[in-house]
Every structure is written in C-alpha cells, then in structure tokens.
Amino acid sequence: MQKKLRITVEGKVYDVTVEELTENGHAAPSYPSIAGTGASSSVVAAPLSAPMPHVPAAAPAASAVPGAEICPLGGVVESVDVTVGQKISQGDRIAVVEAMKMKTPVHANHSGTVASIAIKPGDPVEAGAVLMTIA
C-alpha cells in the first residue's frame, strides 16, 4: 500500500510516496480504515510457532493419595517450607508457587506429620498436582 507523506529535512519540504513492505520485500496487504478514523491499517502475519510442550504434573492426582496436599494453581515451585517428618498444623504454610510473576502461598489442609514431598524449588506444577502427603 502506498501512502503520500510530506517530510521536512533541514527546513526543506518534500512530498514523498512511501510503500509499506513485509520483511521479505513484498508489498504489505492493506485493510479498511481503523474504526472510521480514516487511518488505514495493515497486518503482517507472523509465522506460527511450535505448540507449547505439555508439562506433566509433579505427582499423581490428589484423589488417588490419602492425606495429599494439592497445588491450587499451575506454576513453578518457588519454595518448599516444610521437611519430611515435620509436624504441621492445618493452615501452616507448606510451599510457595509462582504463577505469572505472582507468588502464592500454599497452606496445609491437614494437620499431621509430613510423610513425603513430591516437589522441590524450580519444579513446574499443574493445578491439582500432589505437592506432599501428610499422615
């Protein structure tokens, strides 16, 4: 698409015709004006990227494990705040998961002793993944 423009360089005025090109040097397609402003728009399609790989859960589904503490959201484990054998109470913070640059504390739903931990800092987790079990 060609556009007529007026530019001024060091006090001299020039009327020029400009053609918008794609990265490969072809004329860019043009489309009707934007919301009735009279300004035309053009769109250059970017190549499709490969689909994002599926990240498996850190452990089996919570329903399969008695005493399981499950992850409330998908993200990356920022910290694990308990150790195996530690006694904890319902409501204690057991881990922190980071998702979209927000750190979310995960609190225990059960009181008892930490029997196993299925995650470590840096692990990707999905919502519903077992983080640890409490006996």
Rank of each mutant, 00 (worst) to 15 (best):
S40Y: 15
A64K: 12
G38T: 01
R93V: 15
A115E: 13
A64W: 15
P51I: 02
G67P: 08
S89L: 14
H110G: 01
Q86G: 02
G67T: 04
L48H: 14
V106H: 04
V44Y: 01
H110S: 11
S89W: 11
H110P: 00
V96C: 09
P47K: 05
T83K: 12
V125L: 04
V82K: 01
K87S: 13
S40V: 11
I119G: 02
P105R: 04
T104I: 09
E78I: 04
G91V: 09
P56S: 08
N109H: 13
A61D: 12
V43F: 04
G38L: 05
A127I: 08
P56E: 11
A57L: 11
P32Y: 10
I34P: 03
V77I: 14
V43K: 12
A115Q: 10
G122M: 09
R93K: 13
I119M: 07
P105C: 04
V65C: 05
P60G: 12
V106Y: 00
G112I: 12
P56Y: 00
A99I: 10
V82E: 06
V82Y: 02
A95G: 03
G91H: 12
G67A: 01
K103R: 15
G112W: 11
G75I: 00
D123N: 15
G112P: 00
C71V: 14
A118R: 13
P66M: 01
A108T: 14
G67E: 07
A50D: 13
G91E: 04
G122V: 04
I119L: 00
T104C: 07
A50W: 10
H110R: 10
I70H: 14
E69R: 09
S63R: 11
A46C: 09
P56F: 01
E98M: 03
V97I: 13
V97W: 04
S49R: 13
T37F: 13
G67F: 06
V125F: 03
T113E: 15
H107E: 10
G122I: 06
A115S: 14
V106R: 01
E69H: 05
H110A: 08
S49E: 13
K87T: 13
S41W: 09
S63G: 07
P121I: 00
S63D: 08
K120F: 07
V55W: 08
I119R: 08
I94E: 03
M102T: 13
A108S: 14
I88D: 05
S41N: 10
A58K: 09
S111T: 15
V82T: 10
G85M: 11
C71K: 01
S41A: 10
P66I: 02
V65R: 05
V82N: 03
P60M: 03
P124C: 08
A58N: 08
D92F: 01
A118C: 07
G36N: 00
E98I: 00
A59E: 07
V76P: 15
P29K: 05
H110K: 13
